[in-house]
Design a protein around this nucleic acid. Sequence first.
RNA 1: GGCUGAGUGGCAGAGUGGCUAUGCACCGGAUUGCAAAUCCGUUUACCUCGGUUCGACUCCGGGCUCAGCCUCCA
Length: 472
Amino acid sequence: MLQIYNTLNRRKELFKPLKQGHVGLYVCGITVYDECHVGHGRVMIVYDLLYRHLLSAGYSVNYVRNITDVDDKIINRAAELGVSPTALSQRYIDEMHADERALGVLPPTHEPRATESIQSMIRIIERLIESGHAYAADNGDVFYAVKSFAEYGKLSGRRIEELRAGERVAIDEHKRDPLDFVLWKSSKPGEPSWPSPWGDGRPGWHIECSAMSMDLLGEEFDIHGGGADLQFPHHENEIAQSEALTGGRFARYWMHNGMVRIDEEKMSKSLNNFLTLRDVLAEYSGEEIRTFILSSHYRSPLNYTTEALLAARTALRRFYTALRGRPVPREGMTHDTNPGKTVAMDTGYVERFDAAMNDDLNTPEAMAVLHELTNALNKDADAGSEHAVRLASTLVYLGGRLGLLDKDPEELLHGDAGSDGPTADRIAAMIEERQAARAAKDFARSDQIRDELALQGVILEDAGGKTTWRRV
RNA sequence: GGCUGAGUGGCAGAGUGGCUAUGCACCGGAUUGCAAAUCCGUUUACCUCGGUUCGACUCCGGGCUCAGCCUCCA
């Protein structure tokens, strides 16, 4: 039974979907005005993991993750670069998708764009005005009246009187109350705009998510996720808009992933201390980045360091080394496979893994299960034994549940020669020569060959009378 | 100032009212021509001060430190 930490109540709760067997999941995606950074990667991976876990538990999941493709930052950036906002956002949507593929992230069921839901947003705003929760200012802006929603602050644990609106940013003179936030923004000439009852304009950020989630998941749905930095005010405002509109509940479980840090400080655009996924992918594989992100619990802060990425690389290599040369029936190894059905599994490890994942996606614990499984597998030298095949299958299956270990071990360990590395043929020839030297007890020559390859990033390993190799 | 959350061994990082997390690193051993990989074993811990308890790293309270939010942010 899955337990999820619900930010609304600040504790783990048993997950029960509204509709048996089905889950509606909404995640706040990104604003596409630049390349994704590691923090965005964490969001992608964390909710991908939840998605996979729900699927493997047998749910049908409607996973919606939006794209904000109209926003001040997009408009400004596009103007700077001299391109249209549409072209700019499309470019970064494509880049985001490429990053996701590299990280092994499954596509969500729906990926709505804000600009495709403008009519829904306008309808919601109209109804909010009718019910007295919103008001139009004389300049064409529409604001949400925060004090009209009695439960405002229930997600983030704040009280309206404690908020220091205006302390850090000048208050918009058109607001009746400093806390009010914009639902509809009048546009200046040349900016992207849509006609509305309040004049040409564009939606405010918060209303997008209310509209897109309700369009695709209904007025009330199961899980809403996003980064911890969105808790306030974004998610609080979503709740205020949506629940004021419907009079019922909006999302039932709120999940928030922790921030990625660099030098013990939040990685973010505004602090300009971010590393793009593109940067990191030049140095580490998507699978290594994914392993790094899975190494800590999703709600904890995660510090980005070279050491941590290298540790992920080491862990992954350990798994693949254990799987090397071991037959694993690959059919039926996808996320929706019922373990034990098509491939013999070690149910003990699967149960421990499930228990860890059901405990609010405890991935460090799940990874510990994989390590113990690897250890057990390494102890069985007979690759063809039924026992070894079962353990190897279980390892590949559980790795797959995390979106890992889907590569061929031999290919992965052999890696890519790159521009200056020796080719596989060259290595094979040198290994052959070394074997001859060893047979002749010419260990000086044998070691010379090994050292030479090591300098070129190739490690030789003699085991069981055979020599295998891998790139560092 | 307010609201969240966190402080675990050299590092990363789970967890539990009394019983080995796990991985990396280190040290010793096995294996190896020597290595690598692998296996076995060992060492290092729960911020601080009080309280509850037969017993607390684990519960409660104070303190200290750190991070996030109170502007856009994943």
